Amino acid sequence: MLERPRSVAELQELVARSEKVRVLGTGHSFNRIADSSGTLVTVADLPKVLEIGTSGATVSAGLRYGEIVPALQARGLALHNLGSLPHISVAGACATGTHGSGDTNRPLADAVYAIKFIDASGELVTLTRDDPDFNGAVVALGALGVVVSLTLNVERSYQISQVVYDGLPVQRLQSDFDKVMGSAYSVSAFTDWVDPGVMVWRKQKTPQFAPEWLGAKVADGPRHPIKGMPADYATEQGGVPGPWNERLPHFRLEFTPSNGDELQSEYFVPRRRAGEAVEVLRALGKQFTEIIQVSEVRTIAADDLWLSPSQGRDTVALHFTWVQDEAAVRPVLEKLEEALAPLDARPHWGKVFAADAATLAQRYPKVRDFIALANRYDPEGKFRNEYLDKYLPQ
């Protein structure tokens, strides 16, 4: 049953009387993380809160980034980064470790400096960065409670220009990784790991750019991340400066994301192992041919959040968009994870992966601390589901 509470008090009462509760975000996960044998809750109908100050913005959990960033921009303020889609909810994105790109940019959840959630007893809990539990409570996979609001750090607004390059030799991505990924404020490299040419999207604060770069050439028109797809809903390219919120995502808010016609996986390796990771993927490329739509390479700065994929280390994110055929994708995932295992690759919590609980506990060193934290806020396992029991067993 899906419940749509319209007030925080109604949500508290619902949580208190329910035996099992899970919360739905905007549906951009690709595994069973949000499933429940009991009550499913959406916070989308809670009163919308958007309180903007000079150093922070408090937002209700159901708001999407696309709803809050125009208001920040109108006040001359900004977030440090955004994901590729502005359609995702703030709370859902932070809870699963969603990120953008950029050598100096931490994941989206790093902007959070206060979080308010409803625990298993129905009580409201507020944690700030001064609280010892805070680093375990932001990327929390819904295991601690139902998030009601988040307070985000903001900064002065800035301009971004987006330039797309075609045909970067894939060997340059391997040999000159730091030069490629450090060439702009936010950089994404798109490939299928077979084509010898890589498409690079550079989102930069300085609008100057060269027509040729590292063997690549500026695109002769707008591009979609997947070659051959229409670029109508991609954010503006061609080096035209614009507000941060209109350039950092790959897609415009008017675009309706696909729903159910793809699968996604993502793996996170230490930045210092980037060249080795590219070599591994190039060697596996032909095995992806029948199932891959596109792969994206991004970078993330280290953070301190316990279940964050970039916790404790500067990170390279290796993202894969697959066709919607799990029977065909699963065997390839197993080979991919086996090949990336020596690089200490962490799978994304909200996407398709093959790793078991023991592997996750090894790759994410704060897992045991997190499970203990969840048990304190939810001693009876009200917020647990099959996914949490399988991958984060008590």
Rank of each mutant, 00 (worst) to 15 (best):
G97C: 01
L305F: 06
K335D: 12
G38A: 08
Y387G: 08
S121W: 10
W306D: 07
N81V: 03
G142H: 03
F251T: 09
G350H: 08
P196C: 02
A341P: 01
S36R: 10
A328N: 11
V329L: 08
T256V: 15
M181Y: 03
Y391M: 10
P365S: 13
S265H: 12
L173I: 04
L72V: 07
A93K: 02
P225Q: 07
T54R: 15
M1C: 08
P5F: 02
H224W: 10
V43G: 01
S84E: 10
S295D: 05
E279V: 07
D325K: 13
G228M: 09
V8R: 13
E334Q: 15
G136L: 05
A44T: 02
V112K: 00
E290P: 15
P331K: 11
V112A: 03
V316T: 07
A302L: 06
E67S: 04
S295Y: 09
V8W: 07
A95V: 08
G25Q: 00
D110K: 00
P196N: 08
S188G: 01
Y165G: 00
Y364I: 06
Q264F: 05
V154E: 00
N135K: 14
V200N: 01
L144A: 06
G381Q: 05
P270F: 11
G350V: 09
R272Q: 14
I292K: 07
H80D: 05
K203L: 05
V138Y: 03
R172A: 13
T359M: 10
A184K: 00
A9D: 14
T321Q: 15
D389T: 04
N245G: 04
G381W: 05
G136Q: 04
M1K: 12
S188M: 05
A357C: 11
S161C: 03
G25S: 02
E155M: 12
A95E: 04
F177Y: 06
S29C: 14
G38N: 07
A274T: 05
S55E: 14
V187P: 00
L144W: 11
G62N: 11
F320P: 10
T206K: 09
S84W: 02
V146D: 00
A354M: 12
L284W: 05
Y387C: 06
P169S: 05
T54V: 14
E236M: 03
R363N: 11
A34C: 09
F370A: 06
G215T: 03
P241K: 05
A114D: 06
V218Q: 08
D192T: 11
N259G: 12
F30W: 15
Q204C: 11
R247K: 10
L340Y: 11
F209H: 13
E266K: 07
I300C: 02
L127V: 05
L2C: 07
L46Q: 04
R223G: 07
G145K: 04
R4E: 09
T54P: 14
R129K: 12
Y387W: 14
E338W: 10
V329K: 11
V170K: 14
A143Q: 12
Q287L: 13
D166K: 10
N375R: 15
A374K: 15
L281R: 03
L63G: 06
H319G: 07
N135H: 15
